[in-house]
Amino acid sequence: MQISTTPSTSQVDDARLAEILANPGFGVHMTDHMFTVEWTPDEGWHKARITPYGPLAMDPATAVLHYAQETFEGMKAYRRDDGSVWTFRPEENAKRMQRSSHRLAFPELPVDDFVAAVDELVKVDQRWVPESEGEKSLYIRPMMIATEAFLGVRPAQHVTFMVIASPAGAYFKGGIKPVTLWLTTEYTRAGRGGMGAAKTGGNYASSLVAQQEAIAQGCDQVVFLDAQELTYVEELGGMNLYFVYDDGRIVTPETGTILEGITRSSIIELLGKFGHQVEERRFSIDEWRDGVTSGAITEIFACGTAAVVTPVGSLKWDGGEAPAPASDELTMKVRQALVDIQYGRADDAFGWMHRVV
């Protein structure tokens, strides 16, 4: 893929950038440039370009606005102490976007082109990658949208893939602490054959009302059960779950109707290296409640790109509460090991890191 670059003539100046990187927040400040490439049946992927960051001009009939044909990814670039910049398993993000694209009836962007697009944007905007202190990073958002102006219900014949980026601070501003969870029995994310395994905005939109419910109940996040029986734990609003038993076993809900998290799969490999057997299977809410009450479940943690790994505290539902697990020892060990690999403080025995600059 040949990528043209048009440098911005109104880049954020060094003094303002220093202020932003000192306290970037999350998803608030965008870098100076963005990547775009388009697709049509006749031309395939074409017009790959990096241009100054700016608004999109859209016809009111643009398909994505009406039928939500869109997918996206979330990933990060990390600056190491020597100044180099690396991404974490970008080819896995590319493969997941291909799976999401298949489910949303999109053309599939080749893995090499996906990685090249991310690399080039990070190179052009490398000054936006913060120093590693406080687990700062550059959050990267690849996305694909249906950009044909057409009101018929069919796959779009004009598709646009873009990459934007935003510096991100630590997920836990006041230090890592267990998240409290609310169990929703009214709302579900997706059923068998649905879009639960695709990273598409509709899945996140469907979680928002349940997340509001969780916050109203004094909780940090919401837990979703399966849509068919309302019995089996699936995932949180934006994170996967792990349950640690007192005999060393670890269980994580099986995929199929939940997102195949890249952090999730990395942790499975990491736990194997630590000598733990990981079971991917259906996991009932009763097994959760009984396990923490009896002490058989000693730790629970959640994982995702933004938080990396976070310990889970108590679980609440209408009329009851399960206590927080007794420990977070393995949780914090896994978290530290993963973060150390990402920032180059530990040996990357898995070959996960990809150097950009």
Rank of each mutant, 00 (worst) to 15 (best):
P155A: 00
T180I: 00
L271P: 01
A307L: 15
L183V: 08
Y139R: 09
V122T: 06
T71V: 11
K199I: 02
S206H: 07
G275L: 07
G344K: 02
I297H: 13
P24G: 07
T231P: 03
S101G: 05
E131P: 00
V28R: 15
A322H: 08
L21A: 09
G351P: 03
A105K: 07
E269P: 02
H276G: 08
E279F: 14
V312N: 06
E131I: 04
G194T: 05
H102L: 12
H46S: 10
G25W: 11
V118S: 01
I20F: 01
F350K: 02
V308T: 15
Q212E: 12
T184K: 07
S10M: 02
W182E: 00
F274R: 07
M195Q: 03
M353T: 11
Q217Y: 06
P90G: 00
T200A: 13
T180G: 15
E287F: 04
I267P: 12
E279I: 04
T9L: 14
E108W: 07
T331W: 13
Q126E: 14
A205E: 02
I262C: 05
F26I: 05
I267C: 13
G74V: 04
A61F: 00
A337H: 10
I164G: 03
W288C: 06
V64E: 01
A116L: 07
F72Q: 02
W39G: 03
G134N: 03
A197T: 09
F243C: 05
P323C: 01
D113L: 04
R192H: 08
L109F: 14
E70V: 01
H102N: 09
M144G: 13
I250T: 04
P253C: 03
G196L: 07
T71D: 00
R192Y: 06
E19S: 13
P130F: 06
F224Q: 10
S101R: 10
G174A: 14
G54W: 13
V64H: 14
G194K: 08
A170V: 10
R127M: 05
G261F: 09
M144C: 10
T257M: 11
D82N: 15
I268W: 06
E287W: 03
H66W: 07
E108L: 12
M239N: 12
V12C: 15
F283T: 01
A322Y: 09
I267A: 10
G237R: 11
S10E: 08
V129Q: 07
R281Q: 08
F150T: 01
P142F: 09
M239K: 03
